[in-house]
Design a protein around this nucleic acid. Structure first.
Lengths: 340, 340
DNA sequence: TTGTAGGCGTTATCAG
DNA sequence: CTGATAACGCCTACAA
């Protein structure tokens, strides 16, 4: 484990000079010395000790990827294949910019702020439901934060969002256009400020615009584990009035399809299903799943870019970007269904 | 940001005493002082600065979750839903034991060892293919390592493995018992010491025991992205001789099923498919996927327990644990197919 | 039972 | 152009 001092000794200069070279403060060192030092760095295999750096600079190059654990939930950080899809692209971009990614689940604000101070965390991604409690803790914490699934307007926080409202509207409208009138809405529990509530509003507005009355009994809220989603499919199949389902996540839609088929009904002949996200799974189910597409890798990439701009104190043009959605037609919705 | 010194000042004792209390060296401090100090810690909201700790102790409580990026691969750390299934349980257990999880993708040994020294990483999970290159780097690195998908016998490395051979054998035998003789083997590229090569051997031995000749042209190696797996399904469907497929991963099996159906053939009527892993997806496809079950959360849990025992320098009874597999029958294999 | 002092590797300040 | 030096927060001998 060679240190700056080792390099300095090897070359016969001071630590300061070595440090200057490492940080590219070339103006202050002769070309010759620079060469010598770089050689020694390679030869001795020097790598910086990040702990020492953090200690003196109160900044660590550590970015936290925080997942909020609600107490009743499974303990898994990455519950949704949709999330794991962009964690990879986040790690990659972070790495390319000299940052490190720590994964951490927290239950309380105390957990979170302890973690942040433990490591002088430089920035944060926050996934999952963002509750007010966190907002008050984080807002005067003064580190860049990118919220991935919530809408919370604030300086030093960025939202990377999606046309969630539009997505909900588009999906529902599409079903209506195919002749459906009894359209169920299936989602995880609808939390205020969460993405789902936006999609829900889109659903309701699409109904209203088509003069279809909104019926609370057509709303199915449930967790996203496979058991439960399949069970929801069964419940939906039992309801003889429902002809279509808008599910706010593909894994949910897939579970519902499975449940429907297990009940002896057919998708899309008896009940049509439309999903949300457009994960790979959509092409693996049968029928393949019609869904609202969002670009997960891009979402991840933008999230990191936001964070890095904030870390570098680049002025942001925008605090928030809303990614477009688009409908992807596959085979889970019966076309021109004239049910009305 | 209160420090030990702040606590010491607040209470009117020295840093040493505070430190002793923090580390539970109760014997050396009066009960009264302990109380005072703990109060102050709560009141001032002290949390340890991990950087400072790492610096002085050359150990960091940081555990790396390393994913080996092969150059031609996508840049994603968690390519497989199977992996994301247990990363959550790893983070949880680590956290409960006072450790922190850093995610990092590496391409070369140099990348890896730089990362390890950057942070004084205390221990390592290594997923993905483990090549010799890494072995030589890691083996004298003297930190506990748990290999998740590879077989490399060595002290200070642990394998948490699976009955991969048995899984391959069982899957193939099952197909044979249903009357299949022309059984394709589909997998990601077969790497030496990887799990796949074990499953492959099981496949070959099951064939041999049934006096079925192994045909290299029935082996389909491909990457696991959705495009490619569906394409493989098509290729398999075109081959009129194949009546069954053993795929070494469920996502692969699902893609192959989709490809087969896209070619106008039916699963399992025309071609049977059996998978491996038993991820949630198996219950969402139609037909549902018969597969070899492995317990992913348990695998994650054992992996962490191994690592923590090694970190705590607890003597290990075993360096390696092999988890059992079992066949889960669903609907993707045609029963009693008398094709022979 | 408590305190003092030195050092971990790095950076920034300031002086040569 | 280069080098001392102090400081970051914590830990561990060693003293008292």
């Amino acid at each position: 484990m060679s240190t700056i001092k080792d390099i300095a000794n090897a070359v016969g200069v001071s630590c300061t000079t070595v440090s200057n070279v490492i940080h590219g403060r070339a103006g202050r060192v002769s070309a010759e010395t620079i060469e010598l030092i770089n050689d020694a760095i390679d030869r001795l295999g020097y790598v910086p000790n990040m702990s020492a750096r953090s200690l003196v600079s109160s900044s660590s190059k550590v970015i936290g990827m925080i997942s909020h654990l609600t107490s009743n939930k499974k303990e898994t950080i990455i519950e949704d294949p949709f999330h794991s899809a962009f964690i990879g692209s986040i790690e990659k971009t972070l790495r390319e910019n000299g940052y490190y990614l720590m994964l951490r689940a927290v239950e309380t604000t105390a957990d979170l702020s302890a973690f942040l101070r433990n490591w002088n965390v430089d920035g944060l991604f926050f996934t999952g439901v963002f509750e007010d409690e966190f907002y008050t803790t984080l807002k005067d914490l003064n580190i860049p934060i990118v919220l991935i699934d919530s809408y919370v307007p604030d300086s030093n926080m960025c939202n990377i969002g999606l046309e969630d409202y539009n997505g909900g509207y588009t999906a529902t409208k599409y079903l209506i256009d195919q002749g459906h009138r009894k359209i169920a809405f299936a989602s995880p529990p609808i939390k205020i400020r969460g993405v789902v509530s936006e999609r829900f509003q889109g659903y309701k507005d699409a109904l209203a615009n088509a003069s279809i009355e909104f019926k609370p009994e057509l709303v199915f809220e449930q967790e996203l584990d496979t058991e439960t989603t399949i069970h929801s499919g069964r419940r939906i199949a039992e309801r003889t009035d429902i002809t279509a389902v808008f599910a706010t996540a593909d894994i949910l839609a897939a579970g519902i399809m499975a449940g429907i088929e297990q009940s002896g009904k057919r998708v899309p002949e008896d009940i049509s299903v439309i999903g949300f996200d457009d994960i790979n799974l959509c092409r693996l189910t049968s029928p393949t799943l019609t869904t609202i597409h969002q670009d997960a890798p891009l979402k991840g990439k933008l999230a990191v870019n936001f964070l890095i701009d904030m870390l570098d104190k680049n002025p942001l043009k925008e605090r928030s970007v809303i990614l477009p959605i688009r409908l992807v037609e596959r085979d889970s919705v019966k076309k021109n269904h004239l049910h009305a």
